[in-house]
Design a binder for these strands. Structure first.
Length: 140
DNA sequence: GCCAACGTTGGC
DNA sequence: GCCAACGTTGGC
């Protein structure tokens, strides 16, 4: 299993909205960036990811699971763009802020720090465990 | 609200 | 194929 990070502005699509979708999940649509799309193409059903709120709160707030592999993005006719479907798995008991990530030298290489503009990012196994630890959750 | 960083577009 | 111009993102 691989790990990822999904970034969203809460005013556009928030964790609460994701949770409200339940196990049915939702398309992670609207991505118009080749790097982000390519990462989604690599995803497999069962992969897990962090849900990150950009802009106003700037923190990792929950864990999601990929429930459908990459398929055409229903919000555009442009066949270049694809997306996966994800569902909310659990909130982090203690959201991990961007400041906390930056303050932890073990996380210095996270894409979130290195390339803050990329909206879909890979997360290493080590980074996953560290962030889960900071968030107060068992990283199974 | 500002600005730096980055990606995309289009003229040549 | 290069590069300037432009648009967007996101941290501050």
């Amino acid at each position: 299993m691989r790990y990822w990070l999904f970034k969203s502005e809460p005013s556009t699509w928030s964790w609460d909205q994701q949770v409200a979708k339940g196990d049915a999940g939702e398309e992670w649509d609207g991505v118009r960036n080749y790097q982000a799309r390519n990462f989604m193409r690599e995803m497999e059903v069962g992969d897990r990811g962090f849900f990150y709120h950009s802009q106003t709160s700037r923190e990792i707030v929950g864990i999601v699971e990929v429930i459908a592999a990459a398929h055409p993005d229903s919000t555009t006719d442009d066949e270049r763009w694809e997306c996966v479907d994800i569902k909310a798995v659990a909130p982090l008991p203690r959201p991990v802020t961007l400041d906390a990530v930056k303050a932890d030298e073990r996380l210095a290489d996270m894409v979130l720090v290195r390339n803050s503009r990329l909206s879909v990012q890979p997360v290493t196994d080590d980074q996953w465990e560290i962030v889960c630890g900071l968030g107060g959750i068992d990283s199974r």
